[in-house]
Write a protein that binds this DNA or RNA. Structure first.
Lengths: 146, 146
DNA sequence: ACTATTTAGTGGATAATGTCAACCATTTTG
DNA sequence: CAAAATGGTTGACATTATCCACTAAATAGT
């Protein structure tokens, strides 16, 4: 077994651990009002402040028709707003409303609490080591991004 | 911001990165014949060699009726076999058939290839650092398991 | 021993999630 | 300018997941 196979195995093991540990496998979510993907989308819009749908389609690799409907739902709920853009008339800018911002903030707090429950018994030293390790993973795997 | 908040933020960042990077978000899968969960279940049965459904329900945190149906499908496909157990007559042992074993092996190879594509440009040193980092994460977060 | 509770698994009904292809309007490319 | 590409929407489905009720067997409580 070469070094690459060793790495592949390690990633497999990690994925198995992490998907279950973080509850990514079957995402019965903390807040039944929003699915994991919906939360992720809200968070993405919040990050960008304002963006177009295809930005999100690209970053999250989801179907555009699917996103279109989710955004429609968000608009109906009053948490997202569509704004006609003048530069490119095909696009519509989307952004969080004030309520949407609060709601997203609340969701972030909820996920934070969930994460907190996972790390609450760690020592400061372990926290630091964990941060370093996660950072290392991102910096190594993130290299290959286009 | 205290040390715990820093760690929570780091985990959030990591999750955002990793779910997209590994394609966990919307799991349009490599082999359309099996969903992510199905693959995970097959792999779990393979790990145990033989087990009962509720073992898998517990490890993967999924609905038992849902699993029941998936197992039924697997049986119909001939990749999983149910064996009456004599010790506890409520339970049925499940195990992979020969074909199921091959099939699962094939799926593992497929995911391996997918992972390989992600690390193919890494140096040996980076591979080692990655392994160490992933291991660290598991050992720290895995502590809190029951 | 015998009721009460728990555990394993199944099935019906239905909700939520996600996919595919067709389509219009615009913008970009050759 | 015609052809191809992009952004977004919609219809029609397929897949995936959840909830609840139920049977059968095992276990716990008294």
């Amino acid at each position: 077994m070469n070094e690459y196979d060793k790495t592949i195995n390690e990633i497999r093991t990690f994925n198995r651990f992490y998907t279950v540990n973080m509850g990514f496998l079957n995402s019965n979510y903390l807040d039944s009002k929003y699915s994991v993907l919906e939360t992720r989308i809200l968070f993405e819009i919040k990050l960008h402040k304002i963006c177009i749908q295809s930005d999100i389609v690209k970053t999250l690799h989801i179907d555009k028709s699917y996103l279109s409907r989710i955004v429609q739902r968000f608009c109906a709920k009053g948490i997202v707003e569509k704004i006609k853009s003048d530069d490119d008339k095909r696009t519509t800018k989307i952004t969080l409303t004030a309520i949407g911002n609060e709601e997203t903030e609340r969701l972030i707090q909820l996920t934070n609490q969930q994460i907190k429950a996972q790390i609450v018994e760690l020592s400061l030293d372990e926290c630091n080591k964990l941060c370093t390790a996660l950072n290392t993973v991102i910096s190594i795997l993130g290299k290959e991004e286009n």
